[in-house]
Simulated scan of single mutants.
Amino acid sequence: MYNHMIVTTTDYIAGYEVVEILGIARGSTVRARNVASDFFAGLKNIVGGEISEYTKLMADAREQALKRMINDASKLNADAVINVRFMTSTVMQGAAEILAYGTAVRLKKIV
């Protein structure tokens, strides 16, 4: 569970039956690089290795997009979001959109 909402990449949830499909739940954020990150990334480019500043930036962006998707699903009175996916696209040079989306559903516990 994620903040009392089940979020999964699968199309079913063990122990539950999907009783209503409410629609697509989505959340996104657009993030831009900053000068300090670019400077350290340039240094890493010379010596090699992970660019941890960008890794953290993308992890934070995915988390924010996921939270926004869950908020969108909550507005639909969903119990869960199934088939969750992430997508990224370049918006402009140095900025990317992270999109989280899935199917908002209502569930019934199987007894």
Rank of each mutant, 00 (worst) to 15 (best):
I6Y: 10
E17L: 02
F39T: 14
D11R: 12
F86V: 01
A32H: 07
L66M: 13
G27W: 07
A100L: 03
Q64L: 15
A73V: 00
A78I: 10
N34V: 08
Y2A: 08
K109E: 15
A73W: 02
M92G: 08
A78D: 13
H4N: 15
V111R: 10
L57K: 03
S89M: 10
V47K: 08
S37C: 01
N83E: 13
R106A: 03
A36D: 13
L66H: 00
R31P: 01
D79W: 03
A61F: 03
G49Y: 14
K75E: 15
T10G: 09
D60E: 11
M1W: 10
E53F: 11
K108P: 05
I110E: 11
N71A: 14
Y16C: 06
L57F: 01
A95Q: 08
F39W: 12
A41H: 04
M5A: 05
Y101M: 10
I13F: 01
G94H: 04
V111H: 09
A59Y: 03
V111I: 07
E50F: 10
R26I: 06
V91E: 09
S89P: 05
S52W: 14
I82A: 11
E50H: 12
G49A: 13
A59R: 08
V84R: 04
L76S: 10
S89Y: 11
I24R: 10
R31M: 04
T8P: 05
E63G: 08
A95K: 10
T90Q: 13
A61C: 07
V84W: 06
Y54P: 02
G48N: 12
A104H: 07
H4K: 15
A100I: 05
N71Q: 13
R62W: 03
T10E: 15
T103G: 08
L76W: 09
Q64G: 07
F86P: 00
R31S: 03
G42H: 07
F86I: 03
R33K: 09
I24E: 15
V18E: 04
Q93E: 14
I46L: 14
V30A: 03
A59L: 00
E17Q: 11
A95D: 02
L107H: 04
A78R: 11
K67H: 10
D79F: 09
A41T: 11
Y101P: 01
K44S: 15
E17F: 04
D60S: 09
S52C: 08
M58A: 11
E20R: 13
F86D: 00
M87D: 15
A65Q: 01
F86E: 01
A78N: 13
G102H: 00
